[in-house]
């Protein structure tokens, strides 16, 4: 298992000009660590829709790479997005899913099918050309630099845990983030 903090810390260090759409608990770490907030789009309480926003962004900003920092509960809530994403086949899209098999935000209750589902296989069978699963931080760090250069859509599932329970729950403004990203992209 990989500490969520360690995974996000590494992603933030690796990130260059990518646009990042994040949600739920992994996004709390991301917001704390990111040094490019105008390229970050946090989806607060989006009922699993971060990956759909990221798809639209990837399809409209085709010269940039778009990362989605998703959660397992969020993806399961919007599972049809997998075939919508694979159908559009955005080559600039990397879909990270932080998988602890629980709803961390509400107290770590197990998600449906905990211990039974495999999101990597789901992505592959939905039509993602590339899908990976990591449960070891060093393997993740070794392989990720090449993975993020591949033609997407790519899914990277991270089996993670929250050793300290994660940052406290907070609700920011998705609208403010939308405005900031539009300013940064020059589309406002």
């Amino acid at each position: 298992m990989i500490s969520c903090f360690d995974a996000v810390e590494y992603l933030v260090a690796l990130r260059k000009e990518e646009l990042v759409v994040g949600t739920m608990t992994p996004n709390r770490y991301w917001s704390d660590l990111s040094d490019k907030p105008d390229h970050d789009l946090p989806i607060y309480g989006g009922m699993g829709k971060a990956s759909s926003v990221a798809l639209g962004l990837a399809m409209s900003q085709t010269t940039r790479r778009v990362w989605c920092v998703d959660g397992d509960g969020s993806l399961l809530m919007n599972l049809g997005a997998l075939v919508t994403i694979s159908g559009q086949a955005p080559v600039n899209f990397v879909h990270f899913v932080f998988d602890d098999e629980a709803y961390q935000t509400t107290g770590s209750q197990p998600v449906p099918g905990a211990g039974r589902y495999n999101l990597k296989l789901m992505a592959e069978s939905a039509g993602y050309p590339e899908a990976y699963l990591f449960d070891d931080l060093e393997d993740f760090k070794t392989e990720l630099p090449d993975i993020i250069k591949k033609e997407g859509p790519v899914m990277v599932v991270l089996k993670i845990h929250y050793p300290n329970g994660g940052p406290p729950f907070s609700m920011g403004s998705t609208k403010d983030a939308v405005d900031e990203m539009r300013n940064a992209l020059g589309t406002r």
Partner: peptide, 17 residues
């Protein structure tokens, strides 16, 4: 695949111009 995807996809497209 489901209508609830429509708004967030539209949002991402609009943010991107």
């Amino acid at each position: 695949a489901r209508e609830a995807e429509s708004m967030p996809i539209a949002l991402g497209l609009w943010i991107g111009g």
